[in-house]
Write a protein that binds this DNA or RNA. Structure first.
Length: 669
RNA sequence: GCCACUGUAGCUCAGCAGGGAGAGCAGCUGAUUCGUAAUCAGCAGGUCGGGGGUUCAAAUCCCUCCAGUGGCUCCA
């Protein structure tokens, strides 16, 4: 991205465009005193401004926001009855939400055509200041805009609209100077959404598109998008024969083939070692528990609709587990714990089942059963920071498996203005009882469970302490993170790590959650130094997140060309002809004996054909055996970069074994 | 769950203004015994997602259900 820091002097009352002097199609706005202005705007005072290049982050946002307006203009031309809601820029394009009759992807072409025509006409985009009353009058036939004007413009003050030809939109801008800047647009997809994300509100059509400063950049982007689709784990998984879905027998439930199971097992083995090194003990729990447990844990109250439940013929209610924590708690509870024992940390590859609504299921990133590398730590509050730091370090080590990958850390904290969303500690002012509760909307005021008084006051100190522990751990680990207010789980604050897939969608992988609820629900305590029982804190953590989702990201990250240690086919042996089968069998047997996942092609195809056909299975190394090798007793090895080398069998096996042992992301040969 | 699109052989896809269900690859058989991204020939393979309707006749038109894809909502 192009970031400039050139400063240009400007006088009060002068237009930015005039001060800029030269005509430069790359400059789309001006930054003055930290705010963005249209080039056609007048400077409010003397000073200097920075020209905003279209290739800068702000420049692209302005370009895309302007393209959203252009799309709205074109849409209104074709569908005059349409009503616009909002059209912001996104990370790689823009969208506009519009209330209109559903349209099809063919209609998108027409809108795009109309947009290009308007861009060709190079219509000036003009900002106009209007009073609130004028705004309400101008947009009287659009309830969404009226809402926005009422919400955002204080009485008696002014705001702006942007006008291009016969089109106007309520908007603070800034925008590019004219529609001519928006020639390289492409409409990408259609979706539906509801006003304010509320499914009870109006249904809107969302049209996605993108725009670039030049035709070449647009073409490059579209090409990149196409390439990304080829890396989709569902496609690669099919080619490599890793998993299957049976839409009739198990919709949304992945079944792993032998190849896929190899990847899964390697990941599980990695996590087993990482856990052991960090003091997490392996446990194993059943998939089904009686409903008494789910009632106690609170899962029934909140998630019963998303759980697979059934009643056995003896009348007992059961549920397939949607989470592993109650199981781990059941193990923890088996004996009393001294403060000296803590932390106690249990982990397991715990397979859970959650009913995801039909439109939400998809591939391995959102299946209906998945296996969490689930860990539950039982500890004292003073141990939180160190334990969280340790998990953060585990996260870093784990994601190094992907080579270069960008991790987004998020800290989700409570919104203190909405205490009803959280489980909070309350103190009764009358009798002094301390209790935990979650205010439920519409259920009236909370009362003290022992004296019935409603003179109770919330005590947020535990929440604050937990949040501060997470913050401290992040800071001391040197992590740059984003803090999201109101995103905390109802039982505690959390850290989430997001990783992007092939098409740029962000998926939550690692998570570290402080939990107040479970220790209360299950009355989990330890005996302190004074011999008194004390509440403990629970830490839920997953490093991969789920094996399914991590596998998807792993596949997409490497486009299926996995590091050798986790590659289902580490070596593919291709004899030049059947004459060399006997020698090939010997080479294969040697490798299998060493634990190398080698596969021999015993078919009668030509060498060319064998190599062509195995391509989609993405073997780490290809070994060719023919007359030369038979005579020398060697093999010819070809790596992923298509580099060839003749080696002794033992030399190759030593090198690849080392590579596998080290879980190296790069090839040794 | 909501909106749009899609569903034909193991895979990729053609056929769809109604009238014989097709191709390439994979598979099987035979010939070829081959040096780094497809040797040749033959054979076999399908309830056209399921159900209902319109029609003399439906893969094709209509309705409905299911599933998949992209979004929205949700994601303990």
């Amino acid at each position: 991205m192009h970031e400039s820091s050139t400063q240009i002097p400007i006088k009060k009352g002068q237009r930015f465009a005039d001060a800029l002097g030269r005509k430069d199609g790359e400059i789309v706005a001006a930054r003055f005193n930290g705010s963005l202005f249209d080039l056609s705007s007048i400077s409010p005072s003397d000073g200097t401004f920075e020209p905003v290049n279209v290739h800068s982050k702000d420049g692209m946002r302005i370009l895309r926001h302007s393209a959203a307006h252009l799309m709205a203009q074109a849409t209104l031309q074709i569908y005059p009855k349409a009503r616009l809601n909002a059209g912001p820029p996104t990370e790689d394009g823009f969208y506009y939400d519009i209330m209109m009759d559903p349209i099809s992807s063919e209609d998108l072409g027409n809108i795009e055509k109309a947009m290009k025509k308007l861009a060709e006409e190079n219509i000036p985009i003009v900002r106009e200041e209007k009073s609130k009353d004028d705004l309400l009058r101008l947009f009287h036939d659009n309830p969404f805009k009226i809402d926005k004007i009422r919400d955002n413009v204080p009485d008696g003050s002014k705001s702006s609209i942007y006008v291009q030809g016969n089109f106007k939109d309520f908007c603070t801008g800034p925008h590019v100077p004219s529609t001519g800047y928006l020639k390289n647009v492409k409409l990408l997809s259609l979706a539906s959404t509801n006003y304010k994300g509320d499914e009870k509100r109006e249904k809107l059509v969302r049209i996605y598109g993108t725009v670039f400063p030049s035709d070449k950049e647009l073409k490059d982007y579209l090409k990149m998008r196409e390439e990304a689709l080829k890396r989709d784990h569902r496609k690669v998984g099919q080619e490599m024969d890793l998993f299957v879905f049976s839409s009739e027998r198990a919709p949304g439930f992945p079944l792993y083939t032998p190849n896929g199971t190899i990847i899964r097992n390697e990941l599980i083995a990695f996590m087993h070692e990482l856990n052991a090194r960090n003091g997490w003990q392996d446990v194993s729990t059943p998939h089904i528990f009686t409903d008494t447990m789910w009632k106690q844990s609170g899962h029934y109250a909140k998630y019963k609709d998303n759980m697979y439940t059934f009643e056995f013929k003896d009348g007992t209610g059961y549920a397939v587990k949607p989470m592993n924590c109650p199981g781990h708690i059941t193990i923890f509870e088996r004996e009393p714990h001294s403060y000296r024992d803590l932390p106690v940390k249990y982990s397991e590859p715990g397979q859970v089942y959650r009913y995801e609504k039909s439109g939400e299921v998809g591939g391995l990133t959102r299946p209906r059963t998945f296996t969490i590398d689930d860990g539950h730590g039982f500890m004292r509050a003073d141990q939180l920071v160190d334990e969280i730091k340790s998990i953060i370090e585990m996260t870093r080590e784990t994601f190094r498996l992907l080579g270069e990958s960008k991790l987004d850390f998020e800290l989700s904290v409570m919104d203190e203005d909405q205490p009803e969303n959280y489980l909070i500690e309350y103190v009764c002012q009358k009798c002094g009882t301390v209790f935990h509760a979650r205010k439920v909307a519409g259920e009236g005021e909370l009362q003290c469970p022992s004296c019935g008084s409603d003179e109770i006051s919330p005590d947020l100190s535990k929440w604050k302490e937990a949040t501060e522990s997470l913050r401290t751990a992040l800071k001391e680990s040197g992590i740059v993170y984003e803090e999201l207010k109101g995103e905390a789980a109802f039982y505690g604050p959390k850290i989430d790590v997001h990783v992007a897939d092939a098409i740029g969608r962000k998926w939550q992988c690692s998570t570290i959650q402080v939990d107040f609820m479970m220790p209360i629900n299950f009355n989990l305590q330890y005996v302190n130094q004074a011999g008194k029982k004390e509440n403990l804190v629970m830490l839920h953590r997953a490093v991969f997140g789920s094996y399914e989702r991590f596998m998807a990201i792993l596949i997409e990250n490497f486009a299926g060309n996995l590091p050798t240690w986790i590659s289902p086919m580490q070596v593919f042996i291709a004899p030049v002809s059947e004459k060399y089968l006997e020698y090939s069998e010997k080479v294969l047997a040697d490798m299998l004996k060493k634990g190398i996942r080698a596969h021999l092609d015993r078919g009668t195809d030509t060498l060319n054909k064998k190599l062509k056909m195995i391509r989609s299975k993405r073997p780490s190394y290809i070994v060719v055996v023919g007359e030369r090798e038979l005579e020398s007793g060697n093999i010819t090895v070809r790596n992923r970069k298509n580099e060839q080398k003749e080696m002794t069998v033992s030399g190759f096996m030593d090198a690849i074994s080392m590579e596998i042992r080290e879980r190296s992301p790069v090839q040794a040969i």
